[in-house]
Amino acid sequence: MTTKKFMFVNRKAPYGTIYALESLEVVLIGAAFEQDVSMAFIDDGVYQLKKGHQTKGIEMKAFEKTYGALEDYDVNKLYVDEQSLAARGLTADDLCVPVEVMSRAAIGQLMAEQDVLLSF
């Protein structure tokens, strides 16, 4: 099968909308198809990776653990926008998985190198 570079761009907070959860579902399928998968987290998307999701009060299933399981699917290229983190008072230490914190320009450069960009 042809291998292409797929980047999944996550821009939304985890529970206010379903984009983050359904994005994860596509990421896992992309990995199952043995594609070169990476994920970028920008804007409120950085909140998806914040440690300690507590969803009992909103009666929604927490999916923080899925991010931790990504490496089992060989998805280990997680890029986080430095500026989006800083704007929300977060650092890499606040996140639940190891990531590469990058400048906006560097993420833009990576986007330009992709075959397929899916934005959620």
Binding site: M1, T2, K4, F6, E25, V26, I29, G30, A32, F33, Q35, D115, V116, L117, L118
Partner: peptide, 15 residues
């Protein structure tokens, strides 16, 4: 299934 989306990404020149 979602495999149809990934396949579309692989097969198409532009998604």
């Amino acid at each position: 299934g979602l495999g149809q989306l990934i396949e579309a990404g692989i097969q198409a020149d532009r998604l």
